[in-house]
C-alpha cells in the first residue's frame, strides 16, 4: 500500500515536472492566440464604430417617416378600431439580422416575440434575419410562416423592404390579418436598446377609422390598400434601420468589452509567462551551480 502510494506520488512528481517545462511553450501559444483575438475584436469594434454614424443617420431618417405615418393614424384614430376587434388574426413580423457577436440583442427580441406568443398562441410569424428564425424555430416551429435571410450586411434600403413586403403580401395575404405587429430593437441610446413593437393597420381598419372622414379622400380610389402596402414597406424599412442601428451599437459595445477582457487576459498571461520563464532560468542556474560545485 505504502509502496503503491509512493509510486503514484513519484509519478505525479514526474508529470508535474514535465508540465512545468511544457507550460512555458503552452503559455506562449495561449498568449499569442489571445493577442490575435484582441486584434480581431478591436478591428470589429472599429468597423462597428465607423458604421455607427451611417446607421444613426439612417435611423433618424427612418424615424421621420414613422412620424409622418403615425400622425395620420393618430388623427384618423385608427387604433381604436383595431383595439375593438374581437379575436383578431395576428401576424407578427420580427426583425433582426443574420450576424451575431453583438451581445444579447437578438435573444432579447426573441424573448419579446415569445412572450407575445404565450398570450396569442395562434399568431403567425414572419422572421426577418436568420438569428430570430433559429431562436423561434426551436420553440415555435409551426408558427413561422415566412423567413428571410441576408439581412444586416449593410444599412437597409427601400428596395430590400419592398421585396420583403411583396413576398409577405403575396404569400401570406397580409391584408387579411386584423392585427399586424412589427417587433424590432429600438436603440434608446448609443449604449442601450429595447425590444419594442409597432402596429400596422390593414386596409379595412384604415377605412373604418372614426377619424377617416377628417381627410378629404377620393372614394373611388383604392387609397386604403395603397396606403397599407406603402406603410407596411416603410414601417418595415424603418424598423430594419432602427434594428440595424441598435445592432451596430450593441456590437461596438460587445467588441469593446471583449477587447478589454482580452487585454486583462494578456496581462495575466504575460505575468505568468515571465514568472515561468524566470523559474526555468533559476532551475537551470541551480543545475549548473550544483554541477560546478560537485567538481570542486
Amino acid at each position: 500500500m505504502l509502496a503503491r502510494s509512493a509510486i503514484t506520488q513519484s509519478a505525479r512528481c514526474a508529470t508535474s515536472q514535465i508540465r512545468g517545462y511544457a507550460t512555458l511553450k503552452e503559455v506562449e501559444l495561449r498568449l499569442k492566440s489571445i493577442k490575435n483575438i484582441e486584434k480581431i475584436t478591436k478591428t470589429m469594434k472599429i468597423v462597428a464604430s465607423t458604421r455607427l454614424s451611417k446607421a444613426q443617420k439612417a435611423k433618424a431618417a427612418a424615424k421621420m417617416i414613422d412620424q409622418a405615418d403615425a400622425t395620420f393614424y393618430d388623427v384618423a384614430k385608427t387604433a381604436e378600431v383595431a383595439e375593438a376587434k374581437e379575436s383578431p388574426k395576428h401576424l407578427s413580423i420580427a426583425i433582426t439580422s443574420d450576424k451575431g457577436l453583438c451581445g444579447s440583442i437578438h435573444s432579447q427580441l426573441a424573448k419579446a416575440v415569445k412572450r407575445n406568443l404565450e398570450a396569442n398562441p395562434t399568431t403567425d410569424i414572419v422572421a426577418i434575419g436568420d438569428k430570430i428564425k433559429m431562436q423561434l424555430l426551436r420553440s415555435h416551429p409551426e408558427n413561422i410562416k415566412l423567413a428571410f435571410n441576408g439581412i444586416g450586411k449593410d444599412a437597409p434600403t427601400f428596395y430590400e423592404s419592398s421585396l420583403i413586403t411583396a413576398k409577405i403580401l403575396e404569400e401570406l395575404k397580409a391584408q387579411d390579418y386584423s392585427k399586424i405587429t412589427i417587433f424590432f430593437n429600438d436603440p434608446v441610446s448609443s449604449l442601450s436598446f429595447e425590444p419594442s413593437t409597432k402596429p400596422i393597420y390593414n386596409p379595412e381598419t384604415i377605412q373604418t377609422s372614426p377619424g377617416y372622414n377628417v381627410f378629404e379622400i377620393d372614394p373611388e380610389g383604392k387609397l386604403p390598400t395603397d396606403l397599407f402596402e406603402y406603410s407596411l414597406t416603410s414601417q418595415i424599412l424603418s424598423a430594419m434601420a432602427q434594428g440595424y442601428a441598435a445592432e451596430i451599437s450593441a456590437r461596438r459595445n460587445a467588441m469593446d468589452n471583449a477587447s478589454k477582457n482580452a487585454g486583462d487576459m494578456i496581462n495575466r498571461y504575460s505575468i505568468l509567462y515571465n514568472r515561468t520563464r524566470q523559474a526555468v532560468i533559476t532551475n537551470e542556474l541551480v543545475d549548473i551551480i550544483t554541477g560546478a560545485s560537485s567538481l570542486d
Partner: peptide, 25 residues
C-alpha cells in the same frame, strides 16, 4: 413641410409658402 426619404430628411417642419405635388388624381 416634412419631406422625408428612407435615407434622408430633406425638410423637417420648415415653413414654406406653397408646395406643388404630382398627385395621382
Amino acid at each position: 413641410l416634412q419631406f422625408s426619404l428612407p435615407h434622408e430628411t430633406l425638410y423637417s417642419g420648415s415653413k414654406v409658402n406653397q408646395v406643388n405635388l404630382p398627385a395621382q388624381s
